[in-house]
Amino acid sequence: MSSPATAAPSTRLRPRALAAWLFVCAALVLTMVAVGGITRLTESGLSITEWKPVTGAIPPLTQADWQAEFDLYKATGEYRNVTGPAGMDLAAFKFIFFWEWFHRLLGRLLGLVFALPLAWFWVRGAIPAGYKPRLVALLLLGGLQGAFGWFMVRSGLSGEMTDVSHFWLSIHLLTALFTLAGLVWTALDLRQVARGNAVPARLTRLSLVVAAVLFVQLLLGAWVAGLNAGLVSDTWPLMFGRFVPDANWSRGVWWTFAHDPFWLHFLHRWWAFAAAAGLIVLARRVKPLERRASIAINAAVGTQILLGIATVMSGVALWLAVAHQLVGALLVATLSWGAHVLGRHRA
């Protein structure tokens, strides 16, 4: 029979292993966000018109299978009104199919990488008290994310739609980012458990305010992406030689704020600085407690603003836009880190 002194190290290692596993899952979410950005920017999202959670993991293997998938795509409004008249052939279809298939494959992989170790840790009794509900909630969020992804695709398959709903796109993206923040926060809590501090961090008022401001910016960014509003202007800081562009107000204030690409581009362009200011304030509060977290927040903020400007001025160059989306996700992760530092010291 082992003594408490010899049993303690293995007990401490379990939270560390859980934390490492959650960080791996967070890295996969970041990869999915980047691939999702490529999928969106290459107009690949509607290339797979059916949702097959299991058999869909296998791509078409024969020429006949490829032609059958292409025929299904030809029935979409996007093909009839956009890609078809532009002369899309089977080779071009295979390119967009690959990105949508790869994005869905990563989603399946992430589900397995989360669910299987969770079951193993559960059976082994390696999960600290109070963490099982949180881990199950993260698992459910992942499943919900997949469902939202299909609802998003389905929204672009009806009638003469040539794209997915920007509302569903924002729900899909923001759920992924919320899950990312939860993974990082929970991993950091488990690291504290491994160090002998079993008190979870608490969300502070400042962190909530900054998170709310960043949420608005991320929502605007998702709507800009969904409406291709990034393409309406390739100049910065002015749009068409003006600070405030013309917007269509004839259909009401709500429609303009939720649908007008010029107005949404303008809001996303300048609300970024409100989000940056909030994050910089948070970073300053974090700096005396954990300098690395403060540096990470400031670096992500500066990089994101520069990438946003570069993306606009390049006419939404693919890799700049993907990098912009990826660093946006990293910004969420660093916010979660900084907020956890403040919440840990408060707790």
Rank of each mutant, 00 (worst) to 15 (best):
A75F: 01
L105G: 11
V35D: 11
R40F: 08
G84A: 09
L90M: 14
F151K: 07
P85A: 06
G107W: 02
G87V: 05
W99T: 11
I38Q: 14
G130T: 13
R134Q: 13
G146I: 03
L110M: 12
S47E: 01
R154M: 06
F102M: 14
A92H: 11
N81I: 11
V54N: 01
V136H: 01
S155E: 00
W51M: 04
F93K: 14
L135Q: 06
V54W: 13
Y73R: 00
R40H: 08
L144H: 02
W120Y: 08
W150D: 01
K132A: 12
G111V: 11
G45E: 03
K94D: 10
G111C: 07
E69M: 04
L138I: 13
D65T: 00
L138E: 03
M152G: 00
V35W: 06
L138R: 02
I127M: 09
P117N: 11
I96D: 05
V33P: 04
V54H: 08
A34S: 14
G84V: 02
I96R: 15
G125E: 09
G77V: 06
G142K: 02
T39N: 13
G77M: 03
Y73N: 02
D89Y: 04
L135F: 04
I38P: 01
R80N: 04
L41A: 08
A92S: 14
P117L: 08
F151S: 03
A147Q: 02
T39S: 09
R40K: 05
G142L: 00
A86Y: 05
W99R: 10
A126K: 07
M32Q: 15
F102I: 13
V35R: 07
A92R: 15
A68D: 10
L138G: 01
L105T: 14
W101V: 10
L140N: 00
K74D: 01
Q145M: 00
S47C: 07
F98H: 14
L144P: 00
I38H: 08
R104S: 12
R80A: 12
